[in-house]
Design a protein around this nucleic acid. Structure first.
Lengths: 211, 211
DNA sequence: AGTGAAGTGGAAGGGGTATTCCGTTTCCGT
DNA sequence: ACGGAAACGGAATACCCCTTCCACTTCACT
């Protein structure tokens, strides 16, 4: 990989600092703040990660792998409805604990291929989970696996690290959503947006400053 | 109010420009952009609205009044459940059509008293609506009127002007939420956050850079 | 230990926004 | 129509952030 041991060490310091800072304050935090926390100069950050997106990918790859792992575990749950419930609970917990990863979960980074590969792996397992939960008669038939980003967006707007009230609210929202997903005698849902268009709308470039 | 006719006219131009710009791009847009669209100098904007929050209040007071009016109309609906459904549909439609007002709906501005008075008026009517809908046996008994901000936050994260896919997604999310609100045989909800703490968490000061 | 390349930190440059200041213009009462 | 006060626009100032550059330091190989 890299040639010199100290360079490799600094790179790791930057990533660890980014995990902290992005987790607390989100992925738009000044690079200089990352550098300060890592105890290195700004140039060292820039040299290792010329574009912010590269640092984001490196920083959240582990979290995205955990996400994919959680999806796989849910899909493997002997009780698929239990798996579904647990997975949504996991999501809002993670979103509430890590501001940066909350943003990453609701934003597509077409250039960050390893990150997107993990996201897709999670989606594939989620699709399996949905199929099993529907087959078990617990999940409503018109639920779409592509409602996952919809739910992620919904909960992402609520929770935020540091606010216990919002964490409670997030759990309550998940309970509402789970209730809404139960199979039963109910009106059919309005149409889902086209998956392609939906994911396009979540691409990084089209996300204006934050707010 | 103001002394000179031209000053009054310019002030109105600024507010109308702000309605346009805030609606499209959100309330964090540069003041210089507002001035440019209004066709006045930056100083004129600053003189009339020394703080951004003042311009926000003036700009969205009318929309907040409409919001309160819609809540009152919903509360007066002969069929309260129909009123409830219609109100949620109205909300997501407004949020998707006006980025700035979407932010205003999910942010408290303790200093903007007229704005907050309208918001509270709307909440009072919503409380009436909720009472009637529960009495009619259509709305689940453990729904709290203070779930309104929770739902507003949820939908606010989804819709965005200019994206048809997200508008469709927003309507679908509302359908899920409505289904979740129906009375019926269901597990009780987890506790709601304390209303005071919830509203505190949504105060303007604690909202970091939007993103 | 010496040497050259790799790596480093901070300063300088460039773009953008909020805020202040001031010479000029516009209004309005007389 | 005129004069003073109010209001105006834009330039100047002050930050903040990203990016580039370069003189200096540190490493690793011999």
């Amino acid at each position: 990989m890299a040639r010199r041991a100290d360079a490799e060490r600094n790179r790791a310091l930057v990533v660890r600092a980014a995990e902290e800072v992005f987790g607390e304050a989100g992925i738009d935090v000044p690079m200089s703040e990352v550098a300060r926390r890592a105890g290195v100069g700004i140039a060292t950050v820039m040299r290792n990660f010329p574009a912010r997106e590269e640092l984001i990918e490196e920083t959240f790859l582990a979290a995205m792998r955990d996400y994919a792992t959680a999806a796989a575990a849910a899909a493997a749950d002997p009780d698929p409805w239990q798996g579904f419930r647990g997975f949504l609970g996991y999501l809002v917990r993670v979103q509430g604990g890590n501001r940066g990863f909350n943003q990453v979960l609701t934003t597509m980074f077409p250039g960050a291929e390893r990150l997107e590969a993990e996201r897709q792996a999670a989606l594939r397992d989620f699709i399996r989970l949905v199929g099993r939960a529907k087959a078990a008669g617990k999940l409503r038939a018109d639920f779409s696996p592509h409602d996952l980003p919809l739910f992620l967006l919904a909960t992402s707007g609520v929770v935020r690290p540091g606010s216990e009230a919002l964490a409670v609210a997030g759990r309550r929202l998940v309970a509402y959503l789970l209730r809404a997903c139960e199979a039963g005698d109910t009106e059919p849902l309005p149409p889902a947006p086209g998956a392609r268009e939906l994911y396009r709308a979540l691409e990084n470039s089209s996300r204006g400053r934050p707010a």
